[in-house]
Design a protein around this nucleic acid. Structure first.
Lengths: 113, 113
DNA sequence: CTCGTATTCAACCGTGCGGTTGACAATGCA
DNA sequence: TGCATTGTCAACCGCACGGTTGAATACGAG
């Protein structure tokens, strides 16, 4: 369940073009045409990327005449941030603890000398 | 550059098995054998997953006789967290601002009534 | 209704991923 | 040295990805 959501989210952001699109949308909503313009890929390719991002829940799309403005959503970013932060913190704690062990070893050396 | 690092990192975590491995390693170092045991995939498959994680910089491997214990690294997790957090925060800010606009519209309605 | 604009859909293609099985390398132990 | 343990390398397979081009759709303007 949540597993699939995370898989889709990480897969979506594994592509540099899609990360660029997310970065662009963080500044404000934009249409596929506007999003395609700075990149050297076809509009159809961008459309596919947007579908991937939408399926991942990272963006939503509304309607304005022929245009389909894209909007960056926060919920999935929250999920991803929480996942990464969780294990980053644990790894960090283990790292600190290792430092503590090394420090105590140093102390023992000091005392021994 | 950093682009490739992020791509490799997101790609690595796009796979549920690899996320499980990371979760396991957050509790402590483990050998490929120990990591393969709880999963219903071959040791070779796990070995491949570990190579992907290592190439992404998410884990490092040392040597202990025949064993190759795996260790979770924090640096790339830091990178990922920073990237996600950056855009999550921007999207959040834009969301708050939208709320503010809606609230001010409500106020105008109140005053008009 | 017709035309132009904006976007998506469909089919195809090359490449890479995740899985398998089988052979090989590295190390500890009798 | 011979053998068991642990892990990796290599070749193959099915499938999904990211890209393309060409056709179809949806809508506003005239």
């Amino acid at each position: 369940m949540t597993d699939n959501r995370l898989s889709r989210a990480f897969t979506a952001l594994a592509d540099p073009t899609r990360r660029d699109i997310v970065a662009r949308l963080a500044l404000g909503d934009a249409t596929p045409g506007q999003l395609a313009e700075p990149f050297d890929v076809s509009l159809q390719a961008v459309s596919k990327h947007l579908k991937v991002l939408e399926d991942a829940g990272l963006i939503s799309r509304s309607r304005d005449a022929q245009r389909r403005p894209c909007h960056l959503e926060t919920e999935v970013l929250d999920l991803m941030s929480a996942w990464v932060e969780r294990y980053r913190r644990r790894a960090e704690e283990r790292f600190q603890r290792l430092d503590a062990v090394l420090a105590s070893l140093d102390e023992e050396e000091e005392e021994a000398s």
